[in-house]
C-alpha cells in the first residue's frame, strides 16, 4: 500500500469507530456524565464542604483532575477492548480488515485512535460537568492536553491487548473491574498521598495511575505529589511497551488468525 492508501485505511477504521461511538451515545457518553455528576455531588458538594481544603485548594477543585482521569481511563480502555472483542466474536467482522492489505500497525493505530478520541470527548464532557460544581484553575494548558492524550493512548493500547487476548465477555470485564478500578481509587483520585499514613503512601506510590493523576492535576493546580518528569516518564514507558505488544500480537495474528 502507498502511504496515501494507508492513510485511507487508517481513516476508514477511525471513521467507522467514531460513527459507532456516536450511534450508541447512551452507552458511550451518558454513563460517564451521570457517574461524574454523582461523584461531584457526593464527594465535592456534600462531603467536600466538610473536608474543606486539600493541599491548599477546595476539596471539590482538588478531585476534578482525578475524576476526569477516572472517566478517561475507563472509556479509552473499554473502547478498544470492546471493539476488538466484538469484531472478533460477533460475526467476525474483523476479518474484513484481516483479508485486506492493511498492515498491522495501521490496524493498531486505527483502533487506538478511536479510543483516544472517545477518551478526549469524555474528558471534555466531565470537565464540563465539573463547571457546575466549581470553577477551574488552569496552571499549564499544555500539560493538561498532553496528559489527556497520553493517558488515552496508554489505556487504549492496554484495552486493545485485552481485546486481542479475550476469549469471552468476562475476559474484557475482569481487568477493568479487578485491576483498573482499584488502581484508580488507590491512585490519588480523592486524596493527596501526603495525607496517608506510612505504608499506604508507599502502596499509592507504586501504583502507576498515581503518576498519571498527579501529572494531570499539576496542569490544573500547579501541585503534584510526584515530579512531573516522573509522571511523564511513566506514561511514555507504558505507551512504548503496550504499543510494541500490540504491534507484535497483531502482526502474528494472535487470537485473530488460526
Amino acid at each position: 500500500m502507498t502511504p496515501y492508501e494507508q492513510w485511507i485505511s487508517f481513516y476508514t477504521i477511525v471513521r467507522k469507530d467514531i460513527v459507532r461511538i456516536f450511534r450508541i451515545w447512551p452507552q458511550t457518553f451518558l454513563p460517564s456524565i451521570v457517574t461524574s455528576t454523582l461523584y461531584f455531588l457526593i464527594f465535592g458538594s456534600f462531603l467536600g464542604s466538610r473536608i474543606g481544603n486539600v493541599s491548599g485548594v477546595p476539596y471539590v477543585m482538588f478531585v476534578v483532575p482525578g475524576l476526569v482521569m477516572l472517566s478517561v481511563v475507563m472509556n479509552s480502555y473499554a473502547n478498544t477492548s470492546f471493539t476488538m472483542f466484538a469484531s472478533k466474536f460477533f460475526a467476525r467482522s474483523i476479518d474484513e480488515i484481516l483479508v485486506s492489505p492493511t498492515p498491522p500497525w495501521i490496524l493498531v493505530a486505527g483502533f487506538v485512535s478511536g479510543g483516544i478520541i472517545r477518551g478526549l470527548i469524555i474528558g471534555a464532557l466531565v470537565l464540563g460537568v465539573s463547571l457546575f460544581f466549581t470553577h477551574l484553575i488552569i496552571f499549564n494548558l499544555a500539560v493538561i492536553i498532553l496528559f489527556l492524550i497520553l493517558t488515552s493512548l496508554v489505556f487504549s493500547l492496554g484495552g486493545l491487548v485485552n481485546g486481542v487476548y479475550a476469549t469471552s465477555i468476562d475476559g474484557i470485564n475482569i481487568i477493568p473491574t479487578f485491576i483498573l478500578t482499584p488502581l484508580l481509587y488507590l491512585g490519588g483520585v480523592f486524596y493527596s498521598v501526603t495525607s496517608l499514613p506510612g505504608a499506604w503512601g508507599i502502596v499509592t506510590q507504586i501504583d502507576p495511575i498515581f503518576y498519571i493523576i498527579n501529572g494531570f492535576r499539576y496542569g490544573f493546580l500547579g501541585l503534584s505529589d510526584a515530579p512531573l518528569s516522573v509522571c511523564f516518564g511513566v506514561l511514555l514507558f507504558f505507551a512504548a511497551v503496550l504499543a510494541a505488544m500490540n504491534w507484535y500480537l497483531l502482526k502474528k495474528g494472535f487470537g485473530l488468525r488460526q
Binding site: 500500500m1 502507498t2 496515501y4 492508501e5 494507508q6 485511507i8 485505511s9 481513516y11 476508514t12 477504521i13 471513521r15 467507522k16 460513527v19 450511534r23 469484531s87 460477533f90 460475526a91 467476525r92 467482522s93 476479518d95 474484513e96 480488515i97 485486506s100 492489505p101 492493511t102
Partner: peptide
C-alpha cells in the same frame, strides 16, 4: 456471515474499499 449487522449496507461496502486504500 461476517458483517456487522448494525451497519448500513452502503457503509459496509464503502468501508471495505477503504481497507484497500480506495
Amino acid at each position: 456471515l461476517n458483517i456487522n449487522i448494525f451497519e448500513k449496507v452502503i457503509d459496509i461496502v464503502v468501508n471495505q474499499a477503504g481497507y484497500y486504500g480506495v
